[in-house]
Computed example of a mutant assay.
Amino acid sequence: MLDAWLRLWNGDYTQAPRIISPDFTVHAALLDGGDGSSIRGADGLVAWISQTRAAFPDLRFSVQIDPLVDGDHASVRWTATGTYAGGFPGAEARPGTVVGFTGTDTLRMENGKFVEYWLNSDTLQLLTQLHAL
């Protein structure tokens, strides 16, 4: 499941219906000030990932340390690297700027699919590289 999750974030959207519950919810501090509650189900998640990848088309996520699994919860620490393509609100970095940032995903599984997601990412690190502060 976590391998498919990583492939999904790396742009393989065909993974979503197989691993994401229709009841899927997100808990995250979003850059637009939202809390992630508007992101629902596989379609909502794919739309959010697509929006993120629009500014970084070659964005690649990789696992930084082995995942921790406890019952129906899993947590994975990741790194992401990509090339900025432009269009990020408030960013003064030039397109072509390579960025890297880290984060941790915690997921809850139910009936063989991910149903809940908590995201902690180093947004300060990303915004600093984009000269968006």
Rank of each mutant, 00 (worst) to 15 (best):
Arg53Pro: 08
Asp72Asn: 14
Val26Met: 15
Ala85Trp: 03
Tyr84Phe: 14
Pro89Thr: 05
Ala28Pro: 08
Gly103Leu: 05
Ser21Lys: 09
Asp35Glu: 10
Phe24Glu: 03
Leu30Gly: 03
Tyr13Ile: 03
Val99Lys: 01
Val99Glu: 06
Ile49Gly: 01
Leu31Lys: 00
Pro22Cys: 05
Asn111Gly: 14
Asp72Trp: 02
Ala42Pro: 03
Ser37Glu: 12
Val76Pro: 00
Gln51Asp: 07
Val63Trp: 02
Gly44His: 13
Arg94His: 10
Ile20Ala: 00
Gly36Ser: 08
Thr106Val: 10
Ala16Pro: 01
Thr14Gly: 15
Phe101Trp: 07
Ile20Trp: 01
Thr97Leu: 11
Ala91Thr: 02
Pro17Val: 13
Asp105Gln: 06
Ala29Ser: 10
Thr52Asn: 10
Thr104Cys: 14
Leu68Gln: 14
Trp78Thr: 06
Asp43Leu: 09
Thr106His: 08
Pro67Leu: 05
Arg77Ile: 05
Val46Ser: 13
Gly103Thr: 12
Thr52Lys: 03
Gly33Asp: 13
Arg94Gln: 13
Arg40Val: 09
His73Ala: 13
Ala91Trp: 02
Phe61Tyr: 12
Ala85Thr: 11
Ser75Trp: 07
Ala16Asp: 01
Ala80Asn: 07
Ile39Gln: 00
His73Phe: 15
Ala47Phe: 04
Pro57Asp: 11
Val76Phe: 01
Ala29His: 07
Arg60Ser: 07
Thr81Glu: 11
Leu68Val: 15
Asp72Thr: 09
Ala85His: 07
Pro17Gly: 11
Gln15Ala: 08
Ile39His: 01
Pro95His: 11
Gly71Arg: 03
Asn111Gln: 13
Ala93Arg: 13
